[in-house]
Simulated assay, not measured.
Amino acid sequence: MRAGVSKAGVTLCLGLSLGLMLAGCGDPLSEVPRYSDVPLADDTGQADALAPDTPRTPVTGDAPQRGLLGIFGARAAAATGDGGADAPGPAPRPGAPDAREVPLGVKLPYGQLARVCGEPKRKLGKQIEGYPAKGSKYVLYDSAPGTTAPRSFYLTGFKDRCARQFTAALVIFGAPESYEQLHYGPSGAELPVSSTDAAYEKVKSRVCRVRKGKPCGSKMRTLARDTVFVSVYERFGSNPRWKNILLHDGEVVAVDLKN
């Protein structure tokens, strides 16, 4: 299993989706340790067991491969036609990380998140993946599939019916089951607590009715329906920083920049 980040990055990000690797350019994820090397606790609640040999499906249509992304059950989302423009709903609260609205086509600096409203889905690019894999709540669009360069990505599935735009070379979905396998396992106590971690604890406590530091348990299926981490990488290869976005119930709950 390989990912284009350092081992520290792998232990802190969770994932599902991987952009296209250009033919002949080599694997930019070749130097990263296997995710299965991270020890997992025996009491991680209802989280699915990790399966290192599960096939992965690169989101831009390469031949299926095995490795890190297969662990999280990556699925390429089939395109579903043009899609009409949704009428925007209520905007996020003032000061929210996604409160800013921009017109389609604006290039955002890496690390920034903004809303794009009133545009048909066919203008967002190629639909490449959804989360969850079945009955996707959130759908990811790539504005320039076929390249590993930083470009605009768009996420849909929010209460206000506006897409969220950000710049990245690599985007990874991380299910809460996999997050808990890592953070509530033996190595979890050594990991720093970020704003997305703290926000997850609040969401998990509300939905699962468990105390801080404990796995969700029997309500994991409910939590996972609309809760996901999105890790946003600036480039292929080594990344000294990456953006983490926690989504829940059609809203951006928290955002942080990890180093």
Rank of each mutant, 00 (worst) to 15 (best):
A76M: 15
R161S: 05
G250M: 06
G125K: 03
W242E: 02
G157N: 11
E31K: 15
D98H: 05
P58Y: 09
S178L: 11
L68H: 14
P28S: 11
G135D: 14
N239W: 00
P192D: 15
R206Y: 07
K202I: 12
A3V: 06
L22A: 13
V106G: 03
P186G: 05
A3T: 09
P103V: 09
L14M: 14
L257T: 14
R164A: 09
Y233P: 00
G185D: 10
S30T: 15
L29P: 00
S152Q: 13
T57V: 10
E177C: 11
F166K: 03
A49V: 10
A114W: 03
C13P: 00
Q127N: 07
K204N: 15
V102P: 01
F166I: 08
A189K: 15
R164P: 02
S187Y: 12
S194P: 08
L140Q: 03
T147D: 13
C13Q: 04
L113S: 00
V106H: 04
G24L: 04
D82T: 08
G185Y: 07
F236W: 01
E177H: 15
R34E: 08
D42W: 09
G81D: 09
P215S: 14
P176T: 09
M1H: 11
F158I: 13
A87P: 08
S205G: 15
G125I: 03
K107I: 12
D53F: 13
G188V: 14
G213P: 13
G45Y: 04
Q112I: 04
G61V: 03
A78K: 14
A49R: 07
T227Y: 01
Y179V: 15
E101G: 01
L108M: 06
R34D: 09
R225H: 14
P109W: 13
V253M: 07
T54V: 08
G26E: 03
G4K: 00
V32N: 08
F158N: 09
G4N: 04
K214N: 13
A199R: 05
P97V: 06
G237F: 00
A149S: 06
G217R: 08
Y110L: 02
F236N: 00
K159A: 12
K204S: 12
T80W: 06
T44R: 05
Y179D: 07
L68G: 01
A163P: 11
R75C: 04
A77D: 01
T167M: 04
R34F: 12
T167N: 10
P132V: 12
V232F: 00
A87I: 11
E251F: 02
K219I: 06
Y35E: 07
P55K: 04
Q165H: 08
G105Y: 07
A114M: 04
L223S: 10
T57A: 12
G45K: 06
C25A: 15
A49Q: 10
Y200E: 02
R241I: 03
A51N: 07
Y200T: 08
D160V: 14
A175S: 15
E201H: 05
G95I: 13
K214S: 10
A49M: 10
